[in-house]
Simulated scan of single mutants.
Amino acid sequence: MIVVKTPEEIELMRESALIVSRTLGLLAKEVKPGVTTLQLDKLAEEYIRSQGAIPGFLGLYDFPNTLCMSPNEQVVHGFPTNTPLKEGDIISIDCGALKNGFYGDHAYTFPVGEIAPETKKLLQVTKESLYVGIREFKIGNRVGDVGYAIQKYCEDHGYGVVRELVGHGLGSKMHEDPEMPNYGKRGRGKKFIEGMVVAIEPMINMGTQRIKQHRDGWTITTLDKKPSAHFEHDVALVNGKPELLSTFAYIYEALGIESDEEDEFRQKQLVL
């Protein structure tokens, strides 16, 4: 069952989402060769708690950390470790926060130093596909419209679209209805309704779409061990159109990147 949010609840969800966005912005300054993902995990937990929130992933389904940290061929759900990042790696950081009874859930894949051109293109196309999908989250459309748009965009670039892992509704629970696959057929699936909030999150592989789950019950890697990218936004359906609750602006501010990619999805000006 889809849980529709009131305008007041959407604003509370925006607060949670922006705590995650600011956390990712803080981490953006620290992602560099030599740092460990456990160090980043500690920084994230401390910052989230300083904002009057609690880490959304810590203890959820018994996950032991604040961040899901998934380097290179890991798709999602990787554990932070003491292994230092190295030049040329990529690292997907997925983060959650719970405040005022509502979750924020948000992800970005960072390059570590200089990365290979083909890997840079994977990150670019995956992030672009996120906005291609968000554009389809509007009154009159269905779940399949978002999935189809993401799938077509990525497969047209020759990439594999993961089937077993999907986006989801978001609210007082981390995972609510509906599931939001990154593949599908136009006009299929649940209809979008005003007040819905979803997490849209393309998980796109450089090679095969096929994945492998490891014995730890969490870590997911590509079957061919080629890199995978993951980007995620929290989006509400407001006045019939997609409204971003999360932002990459804090990441871009930290990295000195100028971007207007989010402007079309904001009905309110974002104040940093």
Results as ranks from 00 to 15, higher is better:
residue 60 L to K: 09
residue 25 G to A: 07
residue 65 N to T: 11
residue 243 E to W: 00
residue 29 K to R: 15
residue 132 V to G: 01
residue 233 H to E: 15
residue 233 H to Y: 13
residue 49 R to V: 15
residue 270 L to R: 13
residue 260 D to H: 13
residue 143 V to P: 11
residue 237 L to M: 06
residue 20 V to K: 05
residue 227 P to M: 02
residue 46 E to R: 15
residue 188 R to M: 14
residue 35 V to F: 00
residue 67 L to I: 15
residue 154 C to K: 04
residue 264 E to P: 07
residue 24 L to F: 00
residue 179 E to Q: 10
residue 192 F to V: 05
residue 140 G to D: 02
residue 28 A to Y: 01
residue 119 T to D: 13
residue 184 G to D: 04
residue 112 V to P: 11
residue 129 S to H: 05
residue 198 V to T: 10
residue 101 G to V: 06
residue 89 D to R: 07
residue 246 S to M: 03
residue 38 L to C: 04
residue 144 G to S: 09
residue 253 E to D: 14
residue 228 S to H: 02
residue 50 S to P: 12
residue 257 I to M: 05
residue 192 F to H: 09
residue 6 T to H: 06
residue 4 V to L: 15
residue 89 D to G: 04
residue 237 L to F: 05
residue 115 I to V: 15
residue 33 P to Q: 05
residue 255 L to Y: 03
residue 245 L to Q: 06
residue 79 F to R: 13
residue 135 R to I: 01
residue 182 N to C: 07
residue 58 L to D: 04
residue 192 F to D: 07
residue 137 F to D: 03
residue 169 G to F: 01
residue 264 E to Q: 13
residue 200 I to G: 12
residue 226 K to H: 04
residue 23 T to R: 04
residue 82 N to G: 09
residue 240 G to S: 04
residue 232 E to A: 14
residue 211 I to R: 04
residue 207 G to Q: 07
residue 79 F to W: 14
residue 186 R to K: 15
residue 249 A to G: 00
residue 157 H to G: 02
residue 207 G to M: 05
residue 272 L to K: 14
residue 7 P to W: 05
residue 188 R to P: 00
residue 235 V to R: 10
residue 153 Y to G: 02
residue 178 P to K: 03
residue 95 C to K: 01
residue 11 E to N: 13
residue 90 I to P: 08
residue 24 L to V: 05
residue 46 E to V: 11
residue 138 K to Q: 10
residue 99 K to A: 01
residue 138 K to I: 05
residue 68 C to K: 09
residue 262 E to P: 10
residue 207 G to V: 05
residue 122 L to P: 12
residue 213 Q to N: 06
residue 57 F to K: 04
residue 71 P to N: 11
residue 11 E to K: 15
residue 111 P to L: 07
residue 33 P to H: 06
residue 108 Y to G: 07
residue 221 T to A: 06
residue 81 T to R: 12
residue 241 K to W: 00
residue 76 V to R: 13
residue 165 L to R: 10
residue 115 I to C: 09
residue 128 E to W: 01
residue 78 G to D: 09
residue 201 E to W: 00
residue 203 M to S: 03
residue 114 E to N: 14
residue 137 F to A: 03
residue 133 G to N: 03
residue 197 V to D: 08
residue 159 Y to P: 11
residue 16 S to K: 10
residue 105 D to C: 11
residue 32 K to M: 06
residue 91 I to K: 10
residue 80 P to V: 07
residue 263 D to N: 12
residue 50 S to H: 10
residue 12 L to P: 00
residue 247 T to K: 02
residue 13 M to P: 11
residue 228 S to F: 01
residue 16 S to T: 12
residue 131 Y to S: 03
residue 97 A to K: 08
residue 168 H to L: 02
residue 191 K to W: 01
residue 95 C to F: 00
residue 107 A to D: 12
residue 29 K to Y: 01
residue 215 R to N: 09
residue 28 A to W: 02
residue 118 E to C: 00
residue 94 D to Q: 06
residue 69 M to N: 11
residue 207 G to P: 10
residue 199 A to V: 13
residue 8 E to V: 07
residue 54 I to W: 00
